[in-house]
Design a protein around this nucleic acid. Structure first.
Lengths: 100, 100
DNA sequence: TGGCAGTTTGGTTATATTGCCAAATAAGCA
DNA sequence: TGCTTATTTGGCAATATAACCAAACTGCCA
């Protein structure tokens, strides 16, 4: 396998990994409704703000979300809302799993 | 957040996490073409067979693939090919990232 | 300027993941 | 039955992740 393909797979994995956490999925769902500041997401997730901030950094580095600082708040929003299309398939996997 | 939602998020995260690895993405792409035995996938990935077997177990537990033992070989195939629809969006995220 | 609210960063600890090797299992064949 | 091939399992070491607390930053406002 060539290096290029390897790099592409790694890049894809990084993006998918950035979604592979319950809190981050919750954040993604919330951001699908519109932009939110870190404090709102912190309330939503119910973890330490530093923890939420780190989750957001992971997703930002992956290119899933982008931030926008306005005043003392930082607002995050989804960069590619097509991400939401994932969940339909995920639910289908879950359903198939229970039918097993 | 209720326990039910928490469980659902965790289940989704498990499925997504099962995809979040370069070798596993490669395997998923290959299985999209049709079923393959472990030895074929081992050649493809270029890692130890035990390593590949463990990757397959992770995906099987997540419900992404299923196995079928025939003779001394075990064939794996995708359980929900809709998984492949992910990649279009992932590529869009990657593209948006480079345009940044 | 000083202090406060919102956010990020650094540090630490606990836990999870990954990959290899060696050993165990399972099925086919001489 | 004993051997061989295909696969899984167990164990270990290296690395990565996640959560919290404390400290640093940043922009607003008195």
């Amino acid at each position: 396998m060539d290096t290029k393909k390897q790099a592409r797979l790694k890049a894809r994995a990084q993006i998918i990994k950035a979604m592979a956490h319950p809190s981050r999925l919750l954040i993604i769902e919330e951001l699908a409704e519109g932009e939110r500041c870190v404090c709102e997401l912190t309330d939503l997730v119910g973890a330490d703000m530093s923890t939420v901030s780190k989750h957001l950094t992971v997703m930002k580095n992956a290119g899933i979300v982008e931030d926008d600082k306005r005043g003392q708040q930082v607002f995050y929003k989804l960069r590619c809302p097509c991400i939401m299309d994932f969940f339909g398939c995920i639910e289908r996997v879950l359903k198939a799993r229970t039918e097993y």
